[in-house]
Structure formats: C-alpha cells, structure tokens
Design a protein around this nucleic acid. Sequence first.
RNA 1: GUGGGUGUAGCUCAGGUGGUUAGAGCGCCAGGUUGUGGCCCUGGAGGUCGGGGGUUCGAGUCCCCUCACUCACCCCA
Length: 406
Amino acid sequence: MGFQALPGFRDFEPEAMAVRRWVESSWHEASRRAGYQEWDGPPLESLELFTAKSGAEIAEQLYAFTDKGGRAVTLRGEMTPTLARLVAARAGGLPKPIKWYCVPQFFRYERQQRGRLREFYQWNVDVVGTGEASADAEVIAVAVEGLRILGLEPDDVVVRLSDRRLLRRMLRSIDVGADEEADVMACIDRLERDAKAVPRLEEQLGRARAQQVLGWCEDASLAEADEIAPVLEACEDFGIGDYVRFDFRIVRGLAYYTGPVWEIFDRAGKLRSVAGGGRYDDLVAGFGGPDLQAVGFGMGDVVLTELLRERGKLPPPPSRVEVFVVPIGAEMLRPARQVLRRLRDRRVRADGPYAPLRVGRGLKAADQAGAARAVLVGPSEWAEGSVRIRDLRSGEERVVPIDELE
RNA sequence: GUGGGUGUAGCUCAGGUGGUUAGAGCGCCAGGUUGUGGCCCUGGAGGUCGGGGGUUCGAGUCCCCUCACUCACCCCA
C-alpha cells in the first residue's frame, strides 16, 4: 500500500488545489474590498501562549510536543492568541481601528469526521479598537461577501445572530445566577442537535423557567432588543439583510465572547457551521495587552468546500494552458520551442511536447491541456516565417507570421 | 478516548451458502503509419482483494487483531 497522508491531513492534487485557491481568492478579495490588511504569524508557537488563556486541557486538542531545545511548543490551533500577542506588542503605534485578516493553516489533534480534519485553512477577519455595532456588522458583511463571491446566495446560507449580553440579561430576568449561567448556555447551545438538551434544561431551571427559555428561542420580537437591533440595522445598510436572522439559540462555545455572536450555516442544516464569530472585548487585555475592544470571525475551508460541492457551485477545472504548440515532424521541434518561448515571453500560457509526435497526437495533447488554440509549426509555413493557428473549438485555421504571434 | 458501519485496479463498483491464472465501465498508455484532435476499433499497463495472524486440502469470501475511512459521542478556539 505504501505511504499515505497522516489521518486528518490532506493531499492537494492539482484539481483540489485549484478549488482551494479559488476559495482562498474569494477570501482575499472580500477582505481587501473592505480595507483589511493581510498578516500572518508563525505556525509553531509556545504551548504556553495557548494554555495561558484556555487552560492546560487545551493541550489535549493541540499538536503539542517538546522540541529539540526542550521547549514545550504547539502547532497553532487558532489565531487569536497570536493576534493578541501582536496587538499587545504593537497596538500603541497602530492607527485604530486595526483591520486585519489572515488565511493561516491550523492544526488540531482531534478525531476527524465529516467537515473536521486535523489540518485546515481558516479565514480570520478581525477589527480591534472599536466597540461600534457597525464593526460587528461589517465583519459579518465581509464573511457574507466572501461567500457571495463564491456564488452562495441567501437560499444557500444563513447568518444566525444573537448576543451574549442579551442572553445574560434574559437569564438574569428569570434569576439564573452567574454560577449556573455557563451550564444553561451550554444547554441552549445544543438544543438543536441534542435531544437530551431540553430535559437537562428543565432539570437545571425547573419546568416553568425552561419553558420561558424555549419560548425566547421562538420569539422573533427579541430581534428588536437594544443589543441586537443596531447590528441588524447596519447589516441592512451593508446589503446583507437577506442573509442575516436573529436566533436566540446561537451561543458559541467559547467563553470569551462578550457581545454579538453569530454563526453561518447551510440552509439545509446538514453540515457543521461554515463560519462563526463575535465580539471579544476583553481578550486582548487578557493576554496582557492594552484594553482594546475587538470583533472577528473564522471561516474554515473544509465545511465550505463541502457545501459548495453539495450545491454544485464548484467551478470547472481551469485549463492548464491557452495555447499548445505542435511541431510537425522532428525537424520542427526546435522552431516549436522558439515559438513557445515567444508566447511565454508575451505572458501567454503555452505548452508543447518534449519529443516529436504525430500531429493527431499533438492535437489530442492540446485538447487535454485545455488549450483553446493549437499552433502548428510545419516546414512549409516555417520556411515563410509563419505558423498555422488552429482554433480547437471551431476547427478554423489561419496562417500567421511569427512576428505577429501573441 | 468510546461505540456502530465500511475497506476489491487511479475513479465508480461486480464478485449467492469458501473451490481453478480476481472482473466490468471510465481514466491512462500504445497502435489503426508518417501534416490535423474530440467518435470508433484493437491491444497494453495497473490489484500481495487495507495490513497481519488463524481455521481449512483450499479464503476476496469464515474467525481474531490491527490500520484507514465514515457516522455518532466527546470537543468545537
């Protein structure tokens, strides 16, 4: 059987690579359109950077090991600690708001399943240094723009938005204390996918209060709450109203969210979330940096690509070259190389055979390379300083002087 | 880490209750002759049937172990 990629790791053969680049290019495009600058950090970090905020247990989920210098290190499993580190070190000199994005590869030591591997690429977009709802809406709009560029529309995906402050306020109104809050939130978070969540909620809160919580999950009027309305309003302005919907059940697992939280799902609800984000105003300070508010999101390539495939949105494989040069006879091999060189100088993607071959095979190779045109370099035309250009689709041919070839 | 399902050529899959040199389609390569492709015809390469062990005269087919994939749990930064 030989060697194969480690579990949860992927090979990218040209076809898969083209898809990855296509997805990534939409991420770059959407980021740049909104004025975000790309940045990156090291793929290997000190383990402590990750355990400092998340606790030692996080090491179980990380590709952590001891390096040859005896340092406890880990492949990065997320970007937030690195971002916090950079911002903590440099924020003083940077104009606010800081609008940064990155497309790093992450590693997580977890059992793989659909939509979840041990290695993946994730688009991260963050705004640091403002608490305005307009920033929350903008990062959502940027995420949606990335999806839109890929051809995903409101009937393909939905942004479900809630707010930690609203959630906390509502729970306080039925006397859920700070100590029970985390457990109750965890229940709400899993109401959809876990049948046992409702009984557990009733166990924690009693039947009456649990019913109230379930009622909020169906209550659309909560979208008018002070915590939610400004974000929704700004989303309307940014033209993504059709994509965004208030949903009380969105909690997000992370403890560090402090305001709006949201996740993007496929409309069919068959896949894991495509993206998730929210406001984390205390995190930068928590990493020893200045007190800066922040908002951002992450979008992984794995679920997104599955969704695109399922919806039939993947683009056809790109052609390898535009032009294929076919020498007619062995003595035309050298002229064919010179033609290739001329084309490539003119930034035309062009290819040709290394060894003599029959014209029929040459045209077949041209077809397989995805070329739109074949350049036939034959003795009679070459003697007059010309080549024959064949349109591979229509079959039309014309003789063109080499000097005019481009 | 726990449990269920699956594992035959590059891809998609056939291979009743164990029986001779394991098959098909697609793809790939080469011919159908030397200046014209996509169709068609012919041929070829490619598999230690995920791996190891066991039962048997004989295992792709049965049993055990292991690895991988997959679904769920866990977790989801």
